[in-house]
Amino acid sequence: MQIGTSLFFDRTSAQMTNLSAQTSTLNTQIATGKKLTAPSQDVVAYNRLASIKQADADQSAYSSNISLAKSLLEQSDSTLTAVSTQLQRASELTIRANTGTLNDDDRKTIATELNSILDDLVSLANTSDARGQPLFGAATGTAAVTQAADGTVSLGGTGELPAIPVGDGTSVSATDSAERVFGNIKTKAGGKTDVFAILSSYITALDAGGDVSTASSDAIDGLGAAQTQVNNVQGSVGARAARLDIVSSQATDAATARESDRTGLEDTDLSAAITELQKQMTILSATQASFTKLSSLSLFTYLR
């Protein structure tokens, strides 16, 4: 088979151009640490990288939400512990006030302390969270509870605040409304009341003097129910915090897997790239040397 001079030059030139392009690409990959520099190099890999980057961006937002939710739940837990302590003290005072050996003045003294506990509970109910919003806020209303000039306490709103998204299709309720924590306490008559009304009513009975046995019985039952409700909410808070730990751990594992995928798709294997570069440069150098030698040959060289 005969190869014309023109074809020889064209093929050799194309080979050297291709080798030069490969060495240039390898140099770029080594210098940047990235083996993909354009979508055209590997469309499938570039699409996968785009998905990974979007997932990382989404997870960054979810991670911020997880941190916020954890903070709110931790604050709720500590605040509910303080509420539980106040309710326990109120129950102790109520039982003591029901003792037959106490007189009206003694009970008024207890009423004063119970009134202080009531104020403390109002303050705890209106605790602000890390965002400056009511920790026990509701879907409607701003302040968790309001206290009128005459001491009457009212819940500020109804309904629970929306859950916080912490993952694809996963949300966690980071707060509880004042209604859930302090309200909806069943009465003997079948109705519902709140802890503030229970304490206010009992304080009024103690201040009035006389037989407080019925009022004490009602207050003891009401405060016991309130204590149980707060404990249940606090247990729910703990369960949600544990769930967040699981979600956070799963997100970390997923991020690690994505990073491994990204590295395999995008990052340059420096050892392999340097070895390949040396190989291509050797071939290019040999091709250039051969081309120089062969292109200088002519018929006269053989006739001399």
Rank of each mutant, 00 (worst) to 15 (best):
Q2L: 12
R11V: 09
T12H: 06
A14P: 02
A14L: 11
L19I: 01
Q29P: 03
Q29I: 01
A45W: 02
Y46K: 09
N47W: 01
A50R: 04
A50I: 06
K53W: 08
D56C: 08
A61N: 10
A61R: 13
L72K: 14
Q75P: 04
S78H: 03
S78N: 09
S78A: 12
T81V: 13
T85E: 14
L87S: 07
R89K: 05
S91N: 08
I95P: 03
T99R: 06
L102I: 00
D105W: 02
R107H: 01
R107M: 05
K108D: 06
T109L: 12
T109F: 05
L114I: 02
I117Q: 03
D119K: 08
A125C: 06
T127V: 10
S128R: 15
D129H: 04
R131P: 01
Q133M: 06
F136Y: 10
A138F: 10
A139N: 13
A139F: 13
A143W: 00
A149D: 07
D150N: 15
G157K: 06
T158M: 11
G159S: 12
G159I: 11
L161V: 04
A163T: 10
S171W: 06
T175C: 05
T175K: 15
V181R: 07
F182N: 04
G183K: 06
T187A: 11
A189I: 01
G209P: 00
D211I: 04
V212K: 00
S213Q: 11
A215C: 08
S216K: 00
S217C: 08
D221W: 04
A225V: 09
Q227C: 06
V230M: 14
N232C: 03
Q234V: 01
Q234F: 04
G235L: 00
S236T: 15
G238F: 00
A239W: 01
R240S: 06
A241D: 04
R243H: 06
A257Q: 12
E259R: 09
S260D: 12
S260V: 12
L265Y: 00
A273S: 14
E276I: 10
Q278I: 08
M281A: 12
L284K: 04
S285N: 15
S285Q: 14
A286V: 02
F291G: 10
T292Q: 13
S298C: 05
L299N: 00
Y302W: 10
